[in-house]
Simulated assay, not measured.
Amino acid sequence: MTSNSSVPKKPLSQKRVDLLAALLQEALLTGRRHLHQFSQLSSLARAIESLDTPSIDRARFLTLLRELATDAEAQAQIDVDMFESLLGGRMMKRKAEQEAQLRKDVFVVEAGTTRH
């Protein structure tokens, strides 16, 4: 097996910065998608409210509004689940690290070797 020593390894702090940047980029994309969906919902609501909109179009707009809102809700739930999962994994890792540190700090002494 050969290794490519010309590729420099990133320090841990840089890896964390890169991970944070990737997470922020994902959050930004998610926010933009939700902004677009809310804009569509708002436009449909205004069209339904308009006195110039025929009742047949209002019925179609209401159906479209319901479908778009349902889709937006489902997508938002997926996003929430993803971010909760990421946070949950980080919290679990932190808890495991803390427990490992506690195990290092705890030591056992045989009962017969202590003095009272």
Rank of each mutant, 00 (worst) to 15 (best):
F61G: 04
R58K: 15
Q77T: 12
S55Y: 14
V80L: 01
D52I: 03
L51P: 04
L51Q: 13
R46F: 08
L41M: 15
S39F: 05
S43D: 14
F61P: 04
S43W: 07
L65A: 08
A69Q: 06
E67V: 04
R60S: 13
A47D: 13
F83A: 02
L64A: 14
L68A: 08
L64T: 14
R58L: 05
L44Y: 06
P54I: 02
R58Y: 04
A76L: 14
I56G: 00
F83Y: 00
T53L: 06
S55T: 08
A47F: 07
Q75L: 05
R58S: 03
L41H: 01
R58D: 01
S42D: 07
Q75W: 00
D71G: 03
S42M: 06
S43K: 12
R60F: 05
R58H: 06
A47N: 13
A74E: 08
R46P: 05
A74D: 05
D52Y: 09
T63R: 11
D81W: 00
A72K: 01
Q77D: 15
M82Q: 03
I78Y: 01
D57Q: 15
S39T: 10
L51H: 13
A45M: 12
L51S: 14
F83W: 02
D57T: 10
E67A: 13
I48F: 09
S50Y: 10
D79L: 00
E84N: 12
E84M: 02
L64K: 12
A76Y: 03
D81G: 00
T70H: 10
A72E: 00
L68K: 11
R60P: 01
R46G: 10
Q77G: 01
T53H: 05
S50M: 14
Q40P: 04
A47C: 12
L51T: 11
L62S: 08
F83G: 00
R46S: 12
D57P: 03
I56K: 06
E67N: 10
D57N: 11
E73T: 08
S50Q: 14
S43T: 12
D81K: 15
A72N: 02
A69H: 09
I78T: 04
E67G: 06
S42A: 08
D71V: 01
A72H: 01
S42P: 02
L62Y: 03
R60I: 14
D52M: 10
T70G: 11
I78M: 04
E84P: 03
D79A: 13
T63Y: 08
F83T: 03
Q75K: 09
S39D: 12
L51G: 07
T53I: 02
P54K: 10
F83P: 02
F61N: 07
D52K: 11
S85G: 15
T53G: 13
F83V: 05
D52S: 15
S55P: 10
R60K: 07
L41I: 10
L51C: 01
D52P: 06
A72G: 05
F83M: 01
A72C: 08
S55A: 13
A69W: 04
I48G: 07
Q77V: 10
I78K: 06
E84W: 04
A72I: 01
Q75H: 04
R46Y: 13
A76F: 03
A45W: 09
A59V: 15
I56D: 00
L68I: 02
E84I: 07
